[in-house]
Design a protein around this nucleic acid. Structure first.
Lengths: 111, 111
DNA sequence: ATCTTAGGCAACTAGAAGGTTGCCTATCCC
DNA sequence: GGGATAGGCAACCTTCTAGTTGCCTAAGAT
């Protein structure tokens, strides 16, 4: 049996996604190429430190990962967690659909 | 032409989802049956006002909707917004997959 | 009429989040 | 070695957030 892990809520991941700047960062990293902090900062409208903080929040949620190369730190997406988040949403949506369906059928029955 | 709406970021929806208590509320409402605030408060560990606030955050993100019946206000899920959020995630994930694919193919080409 | 139950509103608090700036370190380039 | 470039760390400020409590109003139930 595949050892069901502890309930493990998706809330922190959603929280990490709940910010414009961070979504933008993810989009930039979505290009596939690992990017440096300076690169990510350019044209962002906020300071380098600000970007660093956001990246760390994303890393905390497991959505990105960094590695050093020389004087720069390169950031890239971590796909596993995002997939999990997507599955969570799908599941919520599904549960939801089922519920609505049940309700609709119930109503129709009564007609 | 279907009048492309302004970019409309999913961030607020994710932010609303980024909280345990709110996820729990959504789960409860996922039952399909509209529930009153008292009902949702029972056994939640936080106060009625706390629950009310969370519900309003969810409503602000368009995820739930309320209606009054007599002395109680009944809350239920609003599905459209959740679907939008799901699509956003799918899109990020997709962009990602494409990028990784491109990268992989690039690497293989060089081999 | 009055008691009880369901909620709304407002004020307040503690702590987290988003952002800044200043300064220090490491690396690269000449 | 010495200047430019890339970041890290820490302190700080302000705004938002999660939660509380107290008190008031509106329905229902008797």
């Amino acid at each position: 049996m595949p050892q069901r892990r502890r309930t493990e809520t998706p809330a922190p991941v959603f929280a990490a996604l709940g910010d414009e700047n961070r979504l933008r960062l993810l989009a930039q990293l979505g290009g596939g190429e690992p990017l440096s902090i300076s690169r990510l900062t350019a044209g962002s409208g906020i300071s380098r430190q600000g970007i660093t903080k956001h990246l760390r929040v994303l890393a905390g949620a497991g959505l990105v990962r960094s590695s050093r190369r020389g004087k720069e730190s390169l950031w890239q997406l971590e796909r596993r967690r995002l997939e999990e988040a997507r599955r969570s949403l799908d599941q919520i949506a599904l549960q939801w659909d089922v519920a609505l369906d049940k309700l609709r059928r119930f109503v129709e029955e009564k007609t």
